[in-house]
Write a protein that binds this DNA or RNA. Structure first.
Lengths: 330, 330
DNA sequence: TTGTAGGCGTTATCAT
DNA sequence: ATGATAACGCCTACAA
């Protein structure tokens, strides 16, 4: 593999001049620039990123942590981030945490050794004080997930509002027996707390008391959704509607409900979250809360690049709109 | 960020000894090893991968090229590759080609500069002679996609057989008017040629003539599938069954068919390819050809690591089983 | 406008 | 068993 010296030799110039051409520095005569370019092409020369990184250069690489790539929501989020990054001349390095603290830390360590310029976290496994300790090595920001702090920018969706409008929609449809399904916990602190709050607010405003039996926590997959439906079927007093924290879980509920002979939305209204492709594939099509994935990707990259170019930048949060998409399941 | 000199200083030893400890070399006394380990922990030391790569080390990183991550088939394939790699202590670097030749070449270039030890290609955009020219920089192998050559190992599925059993299944169900939908072309050379051959073989063995009007090429997405159905509806002479090259396209056909009031499989039988999650979500559930994604990932990593450890390894191909999953759409 | 020299962090070679 | 030193490829003071 040709290196900068080879190019220098072939072009009859010094390494410095070659380097200047590579990096678009001024003070290179057009003639010599031509010579260098020609030699580079002739040798198929590509600057060695390891050497550049070692030298302390920016890497034009941004790391993105997701829980798992097989979750379509995150696959689409990665995609939108990568598209936006690509337009600005940045690469994206994808890391799956598999919801594992150590894997997350391992990825954050890329910052220490300048493998990436900055990191966008779409989920957080470790406590914030752990993550915070990496900020000295490079900018970190949160997109999608968020925590209570003011040290890293966050691209947030108003999850509370999303849950609120979703629950309200069910109430407007006449439901008063509403179940709730979350990927997190149903408490004041844990994952999904904002959605919990929005849900609770809608119900309390309508004078509806929450039935604890109809609260399902830690539900993620299609299989989980099927299981939820089976549990509901075994109840004496059944809900007439269910709000879920993901389209996948909602999908599982819809599929299992049909298998059991229930009609959606007549026997059970179902509302999802994310507006993934599956929402339009299901029959009936899923009413859901849309998360603006493309916007999230664009905004993340915009903010990240600003942090990279201007480290003194003011840290703030960016709230993106969230929207109810009414289809057939409610 | 602490470096090897800091560790050397703190432990009162030389860089060489520290390096020996890091790399598990022999000839280090247990006492000194302890000292070094302690200093490393104290400083939170992490070896700098850029320096190692620059020095010509193996990177324990394997690159994987996929067309796009939002395609669930490839998301799952990446996932299985990463799992297998992780067990062997290898990282995975994901690259999306977006079906673009230049993006693919850009990723292959990582090999030149030792950013990755080897590359697994799940699709190929460039001509083989282009890709072949990168083999001198590190092992390249194909998984899923394949070409006619003997220079790189390939993990193949017998696509011809897959298409053959799929088409045969339709024939056994009594169909004789069978349409065909491919992501490639319907010729002897281009993408998808093996599937084409299998399909043609099944029909010709049953004495069925192929109707060129029922051949749809370059179909990939759910939207494409919907479009195909609309085209079929406008035909005077309609097929009673359709074989598709992907579950996504099949899904689009199913969804659009239901919208138009057709009953599946009575009015139109549909068979997909891949056995993606969508196949079980669709209503009716999709009959499809399963590709053994987990096996593909495991085998790829196994072969790749063998190539890395033994560059003289004999190049051969690995054929994995492909299987018909009968559900409700046929 | 161009070139020389030093150092980024690591490991292999050669001494001791 | 341990250590000094050179080299990987690049960029940037500094010098000319």
């Amino acid at each position: 593999m040709a290196n900068i010296s080879d190019v220098a030799k072939l072009s009859g110039l010094s390494k410095t001049t070659v380097s200047r051409v590579i990096n678009n520095h001024p003070y290179v005569s057009d003639k010599k620039r031509e010579q260098v370019l020609k030699a580079m092409k002739e040798l198929g020369y590509i600057p060695n990123p390891s050497a550049r990184r070692l030298r302390g250069q920016l890497t034009t690489t941004i790391g993105v942590i997701v829980p798992r790539i097989v979750n379509p929501f995150f696959a689409h989020l990665i995609n939108s981030i990568e598209q936006a990054a690509s337009e600005k001349g940045y690469q994206v390095l994808i890391g799956q945490s598999y919801e594992d603290k150590e894997k997350e830390v391992a990825f954050l360590n890329l910052l220490k050794t300048k493998q990436v310029d900055g990191i966008i976290m779409t989920s957080t496994e470790n406590d914030w004080n752990v993550i915070e300790s990496y900020i000295e090595y490079g900018p970190i920001m949160l997109c999608n997930d968020y925590v209570n702090q003011e040290i890293a920018p966050m691209i947030r969706l108003n999850q509370a509002k999303g849950a609120y409008i979703g629950a309200n929609h069910l109430i407007e449809r006449g439901h008063r027996k509403i179940a709730y399904c979350t990927g997190g916990l149903f408490d004041e602190q844990g994952k999904g707390k904002d959605r919990n709050r929005g849900f609770q607010k809608a119900l309390s405003e309508a004078g509806i008391k929450i039935n604890p039996k109809w609260i399902f926590i830690d539900q993620h997959t299609i299989e989980d959704g099927k299981h939820v439906l089976r549990q509901i079927l075994e109840m004496e007093d059944r809900p007439t509607a269910i709000f879920t924290g993901s389209d996948e879980v909602a999908g599982g509920i819809v599929i299992a409900a049909k298998e059991k002979g229930l009609t959606i939305p007549n026997d059970l209204a179902v509302i999802g979250f994310d507006d993934q492709p599956i929402a339009e594939i299901l029959d009936p099509k899923l009413t859901t809360i849309r998360q603006p994935v493309d916007l999230m990707g664009e905004k993340s990259i915009e903010v990240m690049i600003e942090m990279l170019e201007n480290p003194e930048m003011e840290i703030r949060n960016y709230d993106l709109p969230i929207e109810l998409i009414v289809r057939q399941s409610t």
